[in-house]
Write a protein that binds this DNA or RNA. Sequence first.
DNA 1: GGGCCCGCAGGG
DNA 2: CCCTGCGGGCCC
Length: 766
Amino acid sequence: MASHELLPCDGDGNCMRCGKTPFEEEKLVCMTCVTPWHVDCLQVRPESMASARQWKCPDCSDTLVAGKSVAPAVSGAAGELIAAIKAIEADVSLSEQEKAKRRQMLLSGKSGSSDNDDEKHDEEEEKVKDDNEILAILGENMKCSFCMQLPDRPVTTPCGHNFCLKCFEKWAGQGKKTCAKCREHIPAKMASQPRINSSLVFAIRMARSRKITSVAAPRVIHYVHNEDLPDKAFTTERAKKAGKSNAKSGRIFVTIPKDHLGPITAEYDPVRKMGVLVGDCWEDRLACRQWGAHFPHVSGIAGQSNYGAQSVVLSGGYEDDEDHGEWFLYTGSGGRDLSGNKRTNKKQSSDQTFTNANQALRLSCKKGYPVRVIRSHKEKRSNYAPEEGVRYDGIYRIEKCWRKDGQQGYIVCRYLFVRCDNSPAPWTSDEHGDRPRPLPDVPEMKGAKDLTERKESAHWDFDVNEGCWKWKKPPPPSSKVPTGNGTRSSHFRKDSKAKILKEFSCLICNKVLNLPITTPCAHNFCKTCLDGAFEGQKFVRERNTGGRQLRTRKNVMKCPSCPTDISEFLQTAQAFTLLHEEGSLCACCGQCAYIWILEGCLASIQMGGGVIVLFYDECDLDINRELMGAIESLMRKFEDDEKTADGGDEGSSGTANDEESVSEDAENSVSDSDETENKPVKEEADGSGDKSQGENGNCGEDAAERLDDKHKPETSSGAKRGCKRKNPTSCGTVSAALKARGRKAQRATVDGCVFPSSPLNVCYDN
DNA sequence: GGGCCCGCAGGG
DNA sequence: CCCTGCGGGCCC
């Protein structure tokens, strides 16, 4: 950790450790690699002018003895390093193991002092041996071109070459803009903000675990896709704008109480039965919220001033933040002007105090509570942030907190977070979790105001006997009810239910919309009601007068709620209301080998006709899926609320009235679904998702995918209309969707993450 | 990419 | 009920 802090000046002459631009006389140039270093930031400074001239930087001073006699092939530090490595390779007096060890020491910046420590020596040797074997497994291209070892915190250039983060930073820090291996140009973004290549981390970790114990399951980074799950964020009636900017969060999948401290273990996860794992990724904050990792949608700190803090998000909201992976400095909230209906504001306008969320963090510091940490792609200055979305990085503890003058001139609260999780961090190729580590040297802590540190022993601490982090003292009792799995954070009350149901009622039958259709004049009807209203009517009127055929005349068909002529709309819609009693052909395009029953099939089954509507999943144009999704969500909410109120009894069957017929049937369908659990996923993984053999496929994730088409411009209605009407036999969306399925199937296999099918995803065999 | 907007969610 | 908030979508 200490070596991590020793950094030279970058290409612009700024010290990479303190960020300042030292004057020339404050710089020291390494005689070996010619890298400038900021004298003030060195741990050991030369004692005389003479020694300053002979000075070697921390990276060159340890083990470069062998390299001195070799002429560097490449200029700069990397050149020197490569030369040094070549020298090691050429040294016939060294065994392969010793060579590997020297190479590693060369780059890791570790001092030779560990040579005295036999145990460490052996460990080191063992690791090098392991790594060499892993390199043999993974191939030579995997290794860092600087240190010739498996990259530590690997970063990958666009040209596909891998380096240790530190090696790369050093190279880029000297203004090098080409790949050290192939001289390909390195984009400025990569040079200034290299990000850890998590796939490579995974590959190395997997190879390691496979090598060390062939049975050990590799740690998998799980990407959690909420579109595969039953409920997601949705736009409320109140919100003017669609999309997630003003959306209501979807269902909470875990059962932790809102103030739950520490990891979310499998017992709280009825959906995946895995809990939230280090490396779990989500598309955005709302999805992250659904898994309980961090509940607040906007706020960066989750916590209560008299209880402690549950979680924080690093997303670049405060420029004082400083991320070193295993530890980071976090800034408190507040001190900003949020007038004018703002939710955030980059400009500080007053001092922060230890109140509210900041006090919650301070309390967690004092007690040694575990804090869940989320990193967001929006944190652009951190090497450890994910490229996209948000990621759960595990448990940290706040070791110290204080206040200091922030970069904007106002006082900010500061927190030193240090990682203490039993799983390895997403950026390290280590297989084991954290061990207690010495606190990093944080210069700003000296002379800081209101310095707070833990006086008592920590609640969350390392158990030496068990070799893991755990609650050494019981966590504080929760004051909240468990979330998820029924109970909701929603403020829905019984009295608002009737109002909401009315909003979603069919203007013909006055019941809750079933397969809702929205007319061009914006009136909502059940599909069946609308069909019924115009049953037997023709779209055109034949006119025959005494043998002479006149031009047919269009029939005017008024909307049941207003005078608008909706005949054209109906004509289009009717083309899609063909019912197939059974079979494997799409009712729309007639030839798609792949057929899934759309969400509405749940409702159509209870329509009682024994008829199932079959549509290729892109062809069900006329159903207002947005509306249907919202209704589904609401219904589930009501059901769950009622279940909770009734003590989990299936009370709705006894109390059902006309208004709730849809929800009741939906619930029945839910229980049906359990029987088909996992079947879709299995089939996909088998590769039976090939269009040639698809019969009435089990749709797995696809129903949810259909619900989500709002966010998928490529499945625009234009494309779907093309499929339906103009060119039904060469349904372009088929191949696209099949491709999508293929991708999904692959992804499901690769990630090894299998979700049980959700109510909406259920498919019924005919 | 920056600024603005604004529903949601949670704390107090 | 009011205040706060390390979002996300959209417009410029």
